[in-house]
Structure formats: structure tokens, C-alpha cells
């Protein structure tokens, strides 16, 4: 096992163009499950590929287990990677796919069978060893890819959106399986996704990226409850955090904290809301409306409620947000700043 560290890691594809990854500093913890989260094109894959040694950095250093590995080839880095497409070798059986890394790293032939069977058993694909990749379902392919990754017991696991090719149902179970798998093997893992639910559910910590820049690195609770800036605040959560620009700062609050006044106790800021749309989503309701009067007048906001049966379209109601749930951001830097007392009236 090992810790992965990057120092001012930068990748510029076109000279003079924008960097795909800009000066990224990060350090994983031993055995941690770290998730790279960001919108499409934010540089997640590029960052991961530089760590894997598939892409040469423009500048900066990569350290694995405390050693600078910039000039090492992928195979010298003791990493394993699961690709979005799984990249199974189509002409080899499942057995030979899983055995390939052993063969390539000149592990003694006698040990192959034992190791392959161990990996296959861990992922429950012992019965598929004779099949070719094209005879497998999406979920089975993913497991073969994982088995191929663990079989040589790497120091670090890199996974690039391994679930994005699965349908929604399979995805949930595969996610759970991956989590269990990680708990069992305990290898440092970097996992790339643009799906915030996956990131929140699986990550010990989440690295939020946008345009190649790190916006925040923290536990799921930290990035959700205490977003470092407005990008993180709006990228996480659905609907995203409500943001309102006041004179010198930006005030934000999550939709689930915006509730009818009657159900809010303690210190709270309140205002009147004209309800314009109500969506029933089964377990919850999403209500959207426009603030009437006060400093937020005319601002469109979302509220997430467990019940909205008392509300009617076009009605105007009193809503409130607990004072301590208000987040504040600097108007120019968009970074979060200390809470302060504001009046929204």
C-alpha cells in the first residue's frame, strides 16, 4: 500500500492553451478511497492518467509511496487501473485476462492459477473463467476488470468511471460491491466520477475539480455542508444550493433548509415566497418559487420538503432558513467566508 501525492501537477495539451490540469496538489491517505469529482472536461481523467503514467505531466511531480515516479513507466509504478471501457483483451479468456498482469510481471507460472482463482473468487466470477469478454454482461466485465486489477496486489488502484457503462440498477449494486471490495482489500484507491451521488456514497474524501483546478478536498460531509466556494456549493446537491447576491457578499442555503416558517424553530431568517412549481418525487417534494419583497425580492429559489401538501400553486407563504444554515461567500473571490449577521428583510 502506498500514498499518492502530487505537487503542482500541471498538464497543458496545446502549447499556449488552457491547462487541462492546473497546479494540482493532493495527498491521499494510506488505504483511503479518494474520489475525483468534477463536471465533464474538468481534467479528472487527465489527472488520473498522469498518476498512472499514461500521460506525461507538463510540470510538477508525482510521488507514489514517497518516491518521485515522473520518469517511471506505468508498469514500474505498481499501480492497477480499471478503465471506463474496462479494456478487457477481447481475444483472451477471462482466465487469461486476469493472468495477464502476472505473466507480464514474470510472476512464477505455478502461482498463476492460485492467484487468478483467488481474485476471481473475491469478485464472484469463478464460474466465468473460460469465457471470452464478449460473452459477458456489463456487470461481469466490470468484475473481470477489477479482478485483473487486484490480482497482482498493486500499491494503488485507479478507477476511471468504472460504473458509467452500467444501467441504473446494476450501478447501485456494483457501487455497493466496490465499497465492500475496498473495505476488504484496503488498498489506496482513486476513483474518478462525475456523479455526485457516487462520490458522496463511496468516498472517504472527495476532490472537487473544475477546469483543471482543485476547488476543495474534504470528506463528503465537509464538501456538502461547508463548500469551499460557490462552485462546490452549486455543483453538489440537487437541486443545488440557493445563492443570492447581496451588496458585498453572496448568501447561500441548501433547499432542504428552506422550509415553511411554522416548521422552523430557533434563530432563523424568514421571507415570503410565491410558489410557482411543485414536483412530487415520491420520497420528497421540490418546490420552487420567487421571493416576494425584502432584499431577496424577485430571486428564484428551491425548497426540498418531505411534504408539500399544504402548499398550493400561486399561493404566497412564509418560509424560513435557520440562521446557522446560511453560508456566506465573498462576492469577488466566491470563496466561503465566516458567517455573519445579515438581514434579508
Amino acid at each position: 500500500m502506498a500514498v499518492v501525492e502530487t505537487r503542482d501537477l500541471t498538464k497543458v495539451f496545446k502549447e499556449g492553451g488552457l491547462g487541462a490540469v492546473n497546479s494540482v496538489n493532493l495527498e491521499t491517505r494510506e488505504g483511503e478511497f479518494l474520489v475525483f469529482l468534477g463536471p465533464s472536461g474538468s481534467g479528472k481523467t487527465t489527472l488520473l492518467r498522469m498518476i498512472a503514467g499514461l500521460e506525461a505531466p507538463t510540470s510538477g511531480d508525482i510521488l507514489i509511496g514517497g518516491r518521485v515516479v515522473n520518469d517511471l513507466s506505468p508498469r514500474e509504478r505498481r499501480i492497477a487501473m480499471v478503465f471506463q471501457s474496462y479494456a478487457l483483451y477481447p481475444h483472451l479468456s477471462v482466465y487469461r485476462n486476469i493472468a495477464f498482469p502476472l505473466q507480464a510481471q514474470k510472476v512464477k507460472k505455478e502461482l498463476h492459477k492460485e492467484k487468478v482463482e483467488w481474485a476471481a473468487a473475491l469478485l464472484g466470477i469463478g464460474a466465468l473463467l473460460e469465457r471470452k469478454p464478449r460473452e459477458l454482461s456489463g456487470g461481469e466485465r466490470q468484475r473481470v476488470a477489477l479482478a485483473r486489477a487486484i490480482v497482482r496486489e498493486p500499491a494503488v488502484f485507479l478507477l476511471d468511471e468504472p460504473l458509467s457503462n452500467l444501467d441504473a440498477k446494476l450501478r447501485a449494486s456494483a457501487r455497493e460491491e466496490l465499497e465492500r471490495f475496498h473495505r476488504r482489500v484496503g488498498t489506496t484507491t482513486i476513483y474518478v466520477t462525475h456523479d455526485q451521488v457516487e462520490a458522496m456514497a463511496m468516498g472517504d474524501r472527495v476532490l472537487v475539480l473544475n477546469k483543471g483546478v482543485v476547488h476543495q478536498l474534504g470528506t463528503p460531509a465537509e464538501v456538502y455542508d461547508n463548500p469551499a466556494d460557490t462552485f462546490v456549493a452549486t455543483f453538489l446537491g440537487s437541486p443545488p444550493m440557493n445563492l443570492a447576491e447581496l451588496a458585498e457578499l453572496i448568501v447561500g442555503f441548501r433547499p432542504e433548509h428552506l422550509r415553511p416558517s411554522s416548521s422552523v424553530t430557533g434563530d432563523a431568517v424568514s421571507f415570503r415566497l410565491k410558489v410557482e412549481n411543485i414536483e412530487y418525487l415520491g420520497a420528497e417534494w421540490i418546490v420552487s418559487g420567487t421571493v416576494v419583497g425584502g432584499r431577496l425580492g424577485g430571486k428564484k429559489v428551491f425548497s426540498r420538503l418531505t411534504s408539500a401538501q399544504d402548499l398550493a400553486l400561486e399561493g404566497t407563504y412564509d418560509f424560513a432558513v435557520p440562521q446557522r444554515q446560511l453560508k456566506f461567500f465573498d462576492r469577488s473571490t466566491e470563496k466561503r467566508i465566516e458567517p455573519r449577521a445579515v438581514s434579508l428583510q
Binding site: G53, L54, A80, Q84, Y89, P90, H91, A104
Partner: peptide, 29 residues
């Protein structure tokens, strides 16, 4: 051939010759 096949082979520890002869050549048949 998708680019990630030779890349997977590189990560799996295969060098140039092994990638060419064990992975790409059979796929090119």
C-alpha cells in the same frame, strides 16, 4: 483498436514486445 487496450497492457506491466505480440497482434489477425 481502442487506445485503452494497449494502455491497460502497459499498466498491467507489459512492455513493448509483450503488448505487440500478446495483445495487439492477435487482435489484428
Amino acid at each position: 483498436i481502442p487506445k485503452d487496450i494497449p494502455e491497460a497492457a502497459a499498466v498491467d506491466g507489459a512492455g513493448f514486445w509483450r503488448t505487440e505480440f500478446l495483445i495487439l497482434l492477435p487482435m489484428m489477425m
